[in-house]
Amino acid sequence: MSLFSVLSIGSSGMAAQRARAELLAENLANAETTRTPEGGPYRRKDVVFASTEIDSPFASAFSRELEAAGGVAVGDVITDMRDPELRYLPGHPDADAEGYVAFPRVNPAEDMVDLMGATRGYEANVASISAAKDMIERSLDLLK
């Protein structure tokens, strides 16, 4: 039954959007972080989504034919390699010889807007799951 794979597609979308939201939250949390294990200030991260084939446990060979269009997954996490923002803070412990501190190039407004996008994307996937669930329930009602 191809309706069950709608659930898999929806959940793949939810997982991908959640991963995106996690990275955005990480960016916001680290907007002022000047020390990282790799050294230097924190660098902004973002996801690139890639469409994938859905591996539904119930999928038959026939329904797999239909699944050319599949789910989504995080294809890549990209790190923003732009030069850090230099702020003149001579008293800061991480200041260089001239008194400049390298801060992450994170624009909270940009991340907040992306976070809203991720939330909306998540909601849209939830809607597709509940629509499919409703259709499955309707089909089951035929047996009553």
């Binding site: 709608v6 597609i9 269009a69 849209a124 597709s128």
Partner: peptide, 12 residues
């Protein structure tokens, strides 16, 4: 419906 779900999942 599956195609629609797939389109929504791939909106980004």
């Amino acid at each position: 419906q599956k195609l629609v779900a797939s389109n929504i999942a791939n909106a980004d």
